[in-house]
């Protein structure tokens, strides 16, 4: 397992919304998000954007 930088972790969190991450990628990301509050917040917010866009059509 590779230790990720925050920049790599945010990229991987984004890609996780668009493709199936490999086992090693998932593990590295999970470990990083467990110890990095900033990246965990960004990963949550990226997922929130998906919800917001889904509702945008009703509120545009």
């Amino acid at each position: 397992m590779r230790l990720l930088t925050c920049k790599e972790a945010t990229r991987l969190a984004s890609q996780g919304l668009d493709r199936k991450l490999g086992f090693g990628e998932r593990l590295s990301l999970r470990v990083h998000l467990a110890v990095c509050g900033g990246c965990a917040a960004v990963a949550r917010d990226m997922a929130f954007l998906r919800k917001a866009i889904a509702k945008l059509g009703e509120n545009t």
Partner: peptide, 28 residues
């Protein structure tokens, strides 16, 4: 080194924003 200069703060209750029309204006 690829780490945050200033770590982002978590958004407080973002789901509540989905009930506010002004939020969608900001999003657009």
């Amino acid at each position: 080194r690829g780490h945050w200069r200033d770590a982002p703060v978590a958004w407080a209750d973002p789901d509540a924003s989905l009930e506010q029309r002004q939020f969608f204006a900001a999003l657009e």
